[in-house]
Design a protein around this nucleic acid. Structure first.
Lengths: 233, 233
DNA sequence: GGACTACTGTCAGTAAGACGACACTACTTT
DNA sequence: AAAGTAGTGTCGTCTTACTGACAGTAGTCC
């Protein structure tokens, strides 16, 4: 990091810090280590943006394509509207989005809305392509990152198919929990499972009666993780 | 291709042909072109294997990790057993599998069974890693390949959530059709949607009554693609 | 050609979730 | 502190899919 600073004196400490952080997010534990030049190149291309809670971060029509990286806060990726609204995923610190559509040259099939005040890092299409083309270690890391997401996606499909709503709910709670806590309203959780809120509420109440979880306002606490894991299969 | 042959005289025509074909499969239309050296390196690492219809191709316990590429025939990826059996995907010519688990260092969560007599190409773990590390264009292509699969997976989730069985069925038929033909028994299709066969059969009969499809023995013909597309949403 | 296996078609009873609605409670904003 | 907004809890009815079972038919293997 220090060496990178010397190499490219124009970059601020903060930019390099951000880049190093992105490097950690993309392909954690991947075999190819990034050199300080790699990190520096990444830092030069990152731009910052903040989105206030409730606003659309990206994915509206006419939006420029690019890669988005969540620095802090949460984003809700949702497709459809009204009764057909479905929440595809909740993005958290360190999550990367938009690269797939860039690689495949297609528009985003959903809209990203900020659940909290969100800090985003952005990478323009051309910069992203150049990074991949000229920095093999970064490309290698990105490959791991995408692979990880694909695996998560597969697991989600397995979790959806042929399971009762109770099993699906238990799985979702386990997946989305941050330190035993799910800070999402039931409406959102229902949209993540593609079911109606009353159906979900019924299941949650059952689980609460069994002391597996506690239902609070716009949040759920996990009380007995082990038992919940058993209920998920 | 000819030049590659000259460079590495030890490789057979067939090996190079296979490698060129794999190159097409992995990252079709990706921006990074492969040189003949790249193709040649790929050819040197590919080994061949045939599996007879009905047999397990890979994914049994104790199986060595590696990358599998379907050269001809179909593979059924299925997890669970008995009533909980779920078909994750049907692999066809050109599909790649196993690389995700290699990249993430995890076991396959499913078993691959041959639906027809299948011809497979195999890449050992070490060879795969070496290719990625030493051949940036191959890594870049592989990235596109994984991105494409991730996108497919996302679309599948969107297709499952909050849709009626009729919509899901119409979508599945459209997705799995090869030239207007789905050569799979209803049992398998049901397992792909995570529903029971009688439920699926009922839907199929409805669609047949409307002349959108024709149900045959272990196969389904699509008669009216447009109408089916409308039924899918 | 006959036996066997795999796949399809169907049914009746049961369970699960959709749907729409409404009262109530917890936060937020001014 | 009051008003407004967002989220929760709970109904009753209606629709959909599960469940298990069984008969019939199409391919497959000797």
């Amino acid at each position: 990091m220090e060496r990178a600073l010397q190499l490219l004196g124009g970059q601020s400490d903060q930019q390099l810090q951000q880049a190093a952080w992105v490097a950690r997010c993309v392909g954690r534990g991947a075999s190819a280590p990034l050199t300080s030049e790699d990190v520096s190149a990444l830092a030069a291309t990152l731009s910052r943006r903040t989105v206030t809670r409730g606003a659309v971060a990206y994915g509206g029509r006419g939006d420029r394509p690019g890669v988005w990286i969540v620095r802090s806060g949460r984003l809700e990726l949702a497709a459809g509207s009204g009764a057909g609204r479905v929440v595809v995923q909740i993005l958290r610190d360190g999550d990367v989005d938009g690269d797939i559509q860039l690689l495949l040259d297609m528009p985003l099939p959903y809209t990203a809305r900020a659940l909290d005040d969100v800090e985003l890092l952005h990478l323009h299409q051309e910069d992203f392509e150049r990074l991949l083309a000229t920095r093999p270690p970064i490309a290698r890391r990105w490959l791991s990152s995408v692979a990880e997401r694909l695996n998560t996606s597969h697991m989600r499909i397995l979790g959806l198919l042929g399971r009762t709503l109770t099993q699906q709910t238990a799985q979702l709670l386990l997946d989305e929990a941050v330190e035993g806590d799910i800070a999402l309203p039931q409406r959102t959780l229902a949209a993540m499972l593609g079911v109606r809120r009353p159906s979900l509420n019924k299941v949650l109440k059952e689980l609460e009666k069994e002391d597996l979880i506690r239902v609070r306002y716009s949040a759920i606490d996990i009380l007995d993780r082990q038992a919940l894991v058993r209920r998920a299969r």
